[in-house]
């Protein structure tokens, strides 16, 4: 393992320290050092928009803190949910008196900690409404959507909800917009190489040379199958097929496309994938309205990529077009 770390048990602390220094114009450290808040937060009379999740996915989650995006983010250990207290403190930092939406991913730890934070917040008259993302197609069947994990579709959920909140919408409306955004998202990951938690010191799982794991999760959760590694064209075709077969979209539907690296895949390979992804999506009669290519939601140094397709309507298009000012490029 060759990594830029100091004490493996303090990777998150050290990450946060550098992050806050680098982006001091946009973010600040919360009174709880496991919370990143936007400099402008809280905004009086605006619904607060927060999330939280394990570290190791940078720029997610902290990098999406900023104007028209997230007001505060709870920071967890590597690949591990933030505490209930951190979610609560994020809500406090974001609360402008109109309630807070917590938009997070469907993982057992996050579900429990958010649930406890909602209860704790209610005691101090902060209403937290929640939306749990479950866009990862391969993590459970279509009849069990409530079991699916949340992955890069969360970025679209945050962007739409952040813009909606900025327009002065009510808590219910921001929550409904976030829900619609994530309901319209489908994602898939393909893994080519594993990742290592520094404190553990060896890879959590193996991907044999010459193979790929189709449907891999953001923490190396096993996919639906392991196959011989194919060409980028064939992989991209397969990714589009899996995502769109789960998504009953009428011809002519406009979509947003996000292709993210998982940490150790060169960005040029994401463009190689996208060359075919674009062809496959438009070949199915869909129109691509907006495209995002880059390392938007990573998994330490995993080799691999994810594809997210979000179906758009007129309002989601408008919300997606709102400029944001956050450390991650969007």
């Amino acid at each position: 393992m060759q990594r830029f770390i100091n004490n493996p048990d303090e990777v998150v602390e050290d990450t946060v320290k550098g992050f806050v220094k680098a982006h001091a114009d946009i973010v600040r450290l919360g009174s709880n050092p496991r919370v990143i808040a936007a400099r402008h937060a809280p905004v009086s009379g605006k619904v607060g928009v927060i999330t939280g999740g394990g570290s190791g996915h940078e720029p997610a989650f902290i990098g999406y803190t900023g104007r028209n995006m997230l007001d505060a983010v709870a920071v967890g250990e590597l690949f591990s949910s933030p505490t209930a207290k951190s979610f609560l403190d994020a809500a406090r930092e974001a609360n402008g008196g109109k309630g807070v939406v917590c938009l997070y991913g469907n993982y057992a730890g996050d579900n429990m900690n958010v649930k406890m934070a909602v209860k704790l917040a209610a005691k101090e008259d902060i209403t937290i409404a929640t939306v749990v993302a479950n866009d990862d197609v391969c993590s459970a069947g279509p009849d069990e959507r409530e079991k699916r994990r949340g992955v890069a579709g969360e970025i679209f959920m945050w962007k739409c909800a952040g813009a909606k909140a900025q327009q002065g919408a009510s808590l219910e409306d921001v929550q409904a917009t976030a829900q619609r955004a994530i309901d319209n998202c489908r994602s898939i990951g393909v893994g080519l190489g594993p990742c290592t938690l520094p404190a553990v010191g060896h890879p959590n799982f193996l991907i044999e040379p010459g193979t790929m794991e189709v449907g891999i999760g953001h923490h190396g959760e096993p996919g639906v199958r392991v196959e011989p590694l194919k060409s980028a064209v064939e992989i991209a075709q397969q990714m589009v097929r899996i995502v769109l077969d789960d998504h009953d979209l009428a011809a002519g539907t406009e979509v947003a496309v996000l292709v993210s690296g998982l940490g150790a895949t060169p960005v040029n390979e994401l463009y190689i994938l996208h060359d075919t992804i674009e062809q496959e999506i438009t070949g199915r009669g869909l129109a691509i309205y907006k495209t995002y290519i880059g390392n938007y939601f990573t998994s330490l140094e995993m080799v691999g990529a994810t594809l997210t397709v979000m179906a758009l309507d007129a309002e989601l298009k408008r919300l997606l077009d709102v400029d944001v000012d956050c450390p991650a490029r969007l």
């Binding site: 591990s80 949910s81 505490t83 209930a84």
Partner: peptide, 12 residues
């Protein structure tokens, strides 16, 4: 455990 650890095991 509840205030410092997080994950699933912290709350449980």
């Amino acid at each position: 455990l509840m205030t410092e650890i997080g994950g699933s095991m912290g709350p449980l």
